[in-house]
Design a protein around this nucleic acid. Structure first.
Lengths: 234, 234
DNA sequence: GTAAAGTTAGACACCATTGTCTAATTCGTC
DNA sequence: GACGAATTAGACAATGGTGTCTAACTTTAC
């Protein structure tokens, strides 16, 4: 007598790559285990157990360990990419309040791309296994979060047309913006736990303020000694 | 007939923890292999081979794999710490040219702490094995590069007394400074290769310029629209 | 030279893992 | 209910790792 641990999938089986429940269950479990244990430390048995699936089923869907690993990477990259573009699409066309808009943008970026499950996973996997599979570096740059820099640079170029930013080098500004946005997280929460919403918001606002002090054109520079300078002027 | 692959050490043996040649040879090799393969993927045989030492000798010096791993971590941390303090000590007391001084500081920091062998190793090891050994997070924060933030904050506090910086929150400014300094490296060279001296210098200068545009007090803010503002004032 | 300590290659037991195979079972469709 | 495809548990050989042990060898100190 066998106990069915999970509802069985529709027939059609492992040959169709699409939306089989077991398939995604395996992918998710594999991501978890690969990320926790590294490629070498992850065992297929552990993955199968965590996916509530037999080892043979894992081998039915993914010929061998390496195939499974690559599928995990591609899956996470696809999701991360989708998240990135959905976030970029929601940036308001006419940014009335640049500080608030950028802050909200930074928070969403961190929450859904950088600090979330997928973001941490893909970064850790690339760092951990990149030396063994240099291919990972390439696809990370071309398909993965490596694209965020370019995307943000394009956003800044668009924004600068409405004359609220004073930027010479958009690529550099984008890199620095992203670096500032992650400044807090790197030293504090990146290695250990997950930052709370409050921490995300707070560190994003601090980053945006500093960014705007450096790059905001005078019209939107609200804070600090610039204001005083202006008052001196009057 | 046995072939001596390496000169034999002075007697006294593995019991004295100090400066035995085999000991450091093992430590170096272990660091390399652990970092390349991860804890699970690293094999003692491989480490022994790379250290030109027999497996038994490895076990003589370090009781088991985990002992060796921890010794590697501690060794790298010690070196990284020494490097950090030596760099901090060389910062000029009366910074005449803040931009140049900070740039040189940032370059040395990256070259000798963050982007060098040890810096990459310790970061990768903590990221890779931190989940298995949460202890690593702690010592990284307390003894390792986690201290850089505090140290730089103290440096800024000292500098601000000579009235060349306009900083509210020294810790935040330090984090942001470090983030800016690494902005380029993270997106470009961190995962793949090692940045050249030219890249280091260039990205450090760009970072310092942005930092000073945000945090420099008016007296040293040389660039951009601030100057224009001042001229408006005159 | 001798003794003591360290080092070495190799054998060894033990264990975990990969990937294959088989026979039994379950599920959805007809 | 019957069929086909997927799934399952378990056995299995092969491989490679850990950590121990031994006997021989090398080096330094005395």
């Amino acid at each position: 007598m066998k106990k069915p641990k999970a509802p069985q999938p529709k027939p059609g089986g492992p040959t169709q790559k699409g939306q089989c429940a077991k398939r995604v269950s395996i992918l998710d479990a594999a991501a978890e285990v690969f990320c926790r244990e590294g490629f070498a430390g992850a065992s297929i048995d552990e993955i199968a157990m965590e996916a509530c699936v037999s080892r043979q089923t894992v081998y039915n869907h993914y010929r061998e360990k390496e195939t499974l690993f690559m599928a995990v990477v591609q899956d996470i990259l696809d999701r991360a990419n989708a998240a990135l573009f959905s976030i970029l699409a929601t940036f308001p066309d006419n940014a009335d309040n640049l500080e608030d808009d950028l802050t909200a943008f930074a928070v969403r970026l961190n929450k859904n791309c950088v600090c979330n499950h997928d973001g941490k996973f893909i970064r850790k996997l690339v760092q951990t296994e990149g030396e063994r599979y240099p291919h990972l570096f390439e696809i990370w740059r071309q398909q993965g979060p490596g694209k965020i820099g370019t995307a943000v640079a394009a956003l800044f170029a668009r924004l600068s047309h409405v004359a609220r930013l004073d930027i010479d080098d958009f690529d550099l500004a984008a890199k620095q913006f992203l670096a500032l946005v992650n400044a807090d997280l790197q030293t504090n929460s990146f290695f250990g736990g997950t930052p709370t919403d409050g921490e995300l918001e707070k560190s994003a606002r601090a980053a945006v303020r500093t960014f705007l002090r450096a790059y905001g054109s005078p019209a939107v520079r609200g804070a600090g000694d610039i204001k005083e300078l202006r008052q001196e002027t009057a």
